[in-house]
């Protein structure tokens, strides 16, 4: 019988080295980024347009002026023309969204035309906001993705109607400052139930936190879900989130209900 024994000594120089490197990224053709909102709140229906820039360029992002922007309420067949009230910002004061209506946006930039369709769902009432200090209990997860990374947990309480597939977005402000966290939820897995997922936000005692609960459609939900994965770099396969605009425009067209509630952090 033969035995083989190996005495092995290795001295791995176990430090990792990081350095900035040059990557020859393709110059990308600038693409249009359109953010369109139709809201039930006065003055909140507006459209912004800007362009993408190369990877090594610096913000600010170039705005797109002189576009022709119209939004049609397909349900009552009425068209609103939006005018440019600031560079790249388009607005019409009489455009007010209605629940259950479907809207089409048409954006004309030079010779290119981009359109998108979005349906505003019926409003689901936001009953209350409940603060729970559950800091450090994971990232929430479940349908709707990560629930943020903050130290305070705020649970919006509402009764999800079981008759529809519902999609929600929660926009959080802290002391009047809009927070960047993207919170989207679908009712897949808890349709009709009253126990939605909490939102984790960064806040301190006596902060005034406002939560805007928006009812959105599925395409918008998918867009923001994908966007959140990209921003958090938590996806296995980064790609532009699927926009509801055609012809290769980036961004989204969102017809949404809106209802805000405020809570003072204890």
């Amino acid at each position: 019988m033969r035995k083989i024994i190996t005495a092995f000594f290795t001295c791995a120089i176990l430090f990792s080295c990081t350095k900035e490197i040059d990557i020859d990224l393709n110059e990308s053709n600038p693409k249009f980024v359109i953010e369109g909102n139709v809201s039930t709140a006065l003055g909140a229906s507006k459209v912004t347009i800007h362009k993408t820039i190369n990877f090594d360029e610096s913000a600010p992002y170039p705005t797109v002026s002189a576009a022709l922007v119209t939004i049609t309420d397909n349900t009552v067949n009425q068209t609103y023309t939006l005018s440019e009230i600031a560079a790249g910002l388009y607005y019409n004061s009489s455009l007010l969204g209605a629940e259950g209506h479907t809207y089409t946006i048409t954006v004309n930039i030079g010779t290119e035309i981009f359109t998108a369709v979005s349906t505003m769902p019926y409003r689901v009432n936001l009953d209350s906001l409940v603060q729970e200090n559950l800091a450090g209990t994971g990232t929430g997860g479940g349908p709707g993705g990560p629930a943020g990374t903050g130290n305070i947990t705020i649970t919006p309480k509402y009764a999800d109607p079981s008759a529809f597939e519902n999609y929600y977005q929660f926009v959080v402000s802290r002391n009047g400052v809009l927070q960047n966290d993207i919170f989207v939820r679908s009712d897949i897995g808890f349709n009709g139930s009253t126990s939605p997922l909490p939102l984790r936000v960064d806040a301190e005692k006596n902060d005034v936190v406002t939560v805007d609960m928006q009812g959105i459609d599925k395409a918008v939900y998918n867009y923001f879900f994908g966007l959140n994965e990209n921003i958090n770099q938590s996806t296995a396969t980064p790609a532009n989130p699927a926009s509801n605009f055609n012809n290769g425009a980036l961004g989204y067209f969102k017809a949404h209900t809106t209802q805000t509630k405020t809570i003072i952090i204890q």
């Binding site: 990224l25 980024v33 990877f55 913000a59 809009l178 790609a239 980036l250």
Partner: peptide, 24 residues
């Protein structure tokens, strides 16, 4: 691998522009 080819801002946040899968 997939690298971004550019960047843009949406919903107040900077995000990457991708042009293809595994193009780099």
């Amino acid at each position: 691998v997939t690298f971004p080819s550019g960047k843009y801002e949406v919903a107040g946040q900077t995000t990457w522009l991708y042009t293809e899968r595994n193009g780099y």
